[in-house]
Computed example of a mutant assay.
Amino acid sequence: MMKFYKVLFLAVALLVGGLFSSIGVPAGWLLGGLLTGIFYGLFIRAFDFSGWPFQMALALVGINIGLIMEPDLFQQLAQYLLPLFITLVLTLLTGLFLGILLDRWTSLDRQTAFFCTIPGGASEVIAISSDYGADQRIVASFHTARITMFVLIIPFGIGMIYGEGNEQAQAVTQMLPTALQVSFFGLIIVGSYVLNRFVSFPGGILIFSIAFGFLGSEFIVNIGEVPEYVSGIGQGLIGAMVGIRFERSTVVRLRSIGVASLKVLGLYLLCSLGVALLFFWLTPLSYLTSLLSTVPAGAAEMASTAVALQIEPTLVASLHIIRVISIFLVLPFLFKWLMKD
């Protein structure tokens, strides 16, 4: 019975996402799914989509990114590594600084305050936080609020400025995927999931699905033009699964922290806008692309946003994966240093 309610919820989220997209709401699939998830979590009931359901949705988004990936991406990435390193250091320092503030402004222990503000992948940070002695429930609530805030504000704000879509994209929205396309997506989703079980690291399934989608379509088989709503479904699923995490217990735990949680979240947003501005100055990219590439709002969420708004999705996803992996490499050293008296 629980599975039926989960499927019903996802169907409603996709229906709302499709409706939002059809009436021209910026990143309509993503925002429609996100708002439906928030409403369900707060007023109806919450569901847990961690594990394979979220990974499958992420793989669906990754394949769509791989299909539009250009071979010269790696040459592009090389010129952005130094600016990315500079902004990555600043993002880490921002997270440390905000963690110190949260530690001083609240009664939280230092471990929990630190893990609440780490600008890494939310799912990975939440998963390992208890291993370091942090309160996993508070960490999950804070990261859920941070991701929800960014995913609500950034797609809508960028969409209002930049716009999205084009006539050609709209012309293929009524097409049905071919048997070849369905088989192509199914094989890559399953293959990426299985490979990620054996070779697991932050953002792994996103990397695998992007790589398989690119290599498969570029060198193995021509699957033709995929209907736009296929990508939209992936975005809607990501939005729904992220949004429903923001449920009543999240609000209760954030309220227990007090006004300090709102202050830290507000500072997170302002600092992220500033870091994006620096990345914009250091690269030839637009500010909107810089913002999507550097804001600590999750590789999956920002990759979905970039796909929805058609703003350099392969570049955005690649830079976020580099950021997340780099943070997890230095995390043990940061934690050891921070916990010293």
Rank of each mutant, 00 (worst) to 15 (best):
V151L: 15
L152W: 14
L152V: 01
L152T: 12
L152C: 09
I153K: 01
I153S: 02
I154Q: 07
I154E: 09
I154V: 15
I154S: 06
I154Y: 15
I154W: 03
I154G: 00
I154H: 02
P155T: 13
P155A: 14
P155E: 02
P155N: 00
P155M: 00
F156P: 03
F156V: 11
F156L: 15
F156N: 02
G157S: 13
G157E: 07
G157V: 08
G157N: 14
G157D: 06
G157L: 10
G157H: 06
G157K: 02
G157P: 01
I158E: 03
I158N: 14
I158Q: 04
G159F: 09
G159Q: 11
G159I: 08
M160P: 01
I161L: 00
Y162K: 03
Y162D: 02
G163A: 05
G163T: 03
E164P: 01
E164Y: 10
E164R: 10
G165S: 09
G165F: 01
N166E: 13
N166G: 00
N166S: 15
E167L: 02
Q168C: 12
Q168F: 07
A169T: 11
A169Y: 03
A169G: 05
A169H: 09
Q170R: 09
Q170A: 09
A171Y: 04
A171I: 04
A171C: 07
A171F: 04
A171K: 03
A171H: 00
A171T: 06
V172W: 04
V172N: 13
T173P: 06
T173Y: 12
T173V: 11
T173R: 14
Q174D: 11
Q174M: 04
Q174C: 08
Q174S: 10
M175G: 01
M175E: 13
M175T: 14
M175L: 11
M175A: 10
M175Y: 09
P177C: 12
P177R: 00
P177L: 07
T178G: 12
T178M: 08
T178R: 07
T178S: 15
T178L: 01
A179S: 10
A179I: 00
L180C: 07
L180P: 08
L180Y: 07
Q181R: 12
Q181D: 11
V182L: 15
V182N: 06
S183T: 03
S183F: 01
S183E: 07
S183P: 05
F184M: 04
F184A: 13
F184S: 08
F185Q: 04
F185I: 07
F185G: 10
F185P: 05
F185V: 05
G186E: 06
G186Y: 06
G186P: 08
G186T: 03
L187W: 14
I188P: 04
I188V: 03
I188Q: 05
I189A: 09
I189K: 10
I189D: 01
V190Y: 05
V190A: 14
G191Q: 01
G191S: 05
G191M: 12
G191E: 10
G191Y: 13
G191D: 06
S192N: 03
S192D: 04
S192C: 07
S192K: 14
S192E: 12
S192V: 14
Y193N: 06
Y193W: 10
V194A: 09
V194E: 10
V194G: 08
V194P: 03
V194I: 15
V194C: 13
L195G: 09
L195Y: 11
